[in-house]
């Protein structure tokens, strides 16, 4: 087992991918494999590589091919980001423009109605939208944070200790990837129902605390980041196991932990089946955004409503992107350095 250290800012490592007994390749991220964090060095390297490519050796790197590839990639970017353009444009329109401008017109602005839409979304459906957004932040934030702590502890236990049943626990972790969520969620729902948890935030929080995938990531990460010798040394210095975990392991695991948190956060933010099951039939006040938007999309009769549902749904969708986008941009450093651990996802 290699003891390469993928912690951000650490010394350069060799580029050998870790290969953990039957677990497929987990590639190390580019930034870390390509050298030190020193900017100059990286630049020098890039220049060098450009120069290398400029050499007459590479017959393939012709201008035309390059342009073709670039054009292909450009199309892919339009495909990826284009729908969001439509969403932005559509959310500035009033209902009548929305239905009046079809086809190509739907890709450009009509009468600018964004402020009115914005005002309406906070009163539409009794103004629940903001509440749902806060709920989503709460569920994803708290759920992922607790899951991260539990997973790190479990991953650490699995990676750096020998104990009876360890194989079984890890086997269960991997096997659980195969379990359909319906098989787990419906019986869990019945249990939670009899405990009076259904409809409360606990019904979505508790299931999010236990994430086998995060445990798997934590184990792989710790095996790479925490050399056993370090732990032995700390023990000899007289540190207790708990203290080692919090003062040694956790410190070295900042990037790993952040990555686990990030992936769990995105997963929880997108989670739909569990909230639908656990909260769908209960009061609106505990819904996350996904459920609120789903409810709006299926609204049949707007008896007494004076605001159009479609434009609310469109603006609601756009606003729902913002927290996740902010979060991802804020976590960009970890996202770039650590997310390739998600290669196993």
């Amino acid at each position: 087992m290699s003891t390469t250290n993928p912690v951000a800012g650490a010394a350069p490592t060799d580029s050998a991918p870790q290969d953990d007994a039957g677990v497929p390749v987990v590639a190390l991220p580019a930034q870390e494999t390509s050298g030190t964090s020193s900017k100059d060095k990286r630049r020098a390297k890039r220049r060098e590589s450009l120069a290398r490519r400029g050499l007459p050796v590479g017959a393939g790197q012709s201008k035309t091919t390059q342009l073709l590839v670039l054009a292909g990639m450009g199309l892919a970017v339009i495909y990826s980001a284009g729908p969001i353009w439509w969403l932005i444009v559509a959310s500035t329109k009033g209902q009548s423009d929305l239905y009046a401008s079809t086809g190509f017109e739907s890709l450009w602005f009509a009468e600018f109605n964004l402020w009115e839409n914005l005002q309406q979304i906070f009163i539409y459906d009794d103004g629940y939208y903001l509440r749902w957004m806060l709920n989503s932040v709460l569920y994803a934030g708290v759920g992922s944070f607790v899951a991260m702590l539990i997973s790190l502890a479990a991953g650490y236990g699995l990676a750096r200790y020998e104990f009876w049943g360890k194989k079984a626990v890890f086997g269960a972790v991997v096997a659980s990837f195969l379990l359909p969520s319906a098989l787990l969620t419906i019986p869990l729902y019945l249990q939670f129902s009899s405990w009076g948890l259904v409809g409360t935030p606990w019904a979505v929080l508790i299931p999010s605390f236990i994430s086998p995938f995060s445990v798997y990531l934590a184990k792989v990460y710790i095996e790479g980041a925490i050399p056993p010798e370090l732990l032995e040394a700390a023990r000899i210095d007289g540190a207790g196991e708990v203290r080692i975990f919090f003062q040694v392991v956790m410190r070295l695991m900042t990037t790993g932990a952040a990555t686990i948190f990030l992936l769990a956060f995105v997963g929880n933010w997108n989670s739909f089946f569990t909230p639908l099951t656990m909260l769908g039939t209960a009061g609106k006040e505990n819904w996350p955004l996904a459920l609120g938007l789903y409810a709006w999309s299926g609204k049949r009769t707007l008896a007494g409503e004076t605001i159009d549902g479609t434009s609310m749904l469109i603006l609601g969708s756009l606003l729902a992107i913002i927290p996740l986008a902010i979060f991802m941009i804020a976590m960009q450093r970890f996202w770039k350095t650590g997310v390739t651990l998600g290669a196993v996802k």
Binding site: I150, G157, Y161, F163, G165, V169, P212
Partner: peptide, 12 residues
């Protein structure tokens, strides 16, 4: 070591 995996194992 097993104790570290306990919270997860119980939850699991």
């Amino acid at each position: 070591g097993a104790a570290f995996t306990m919270p997860f194992a119980i939850g699991f």
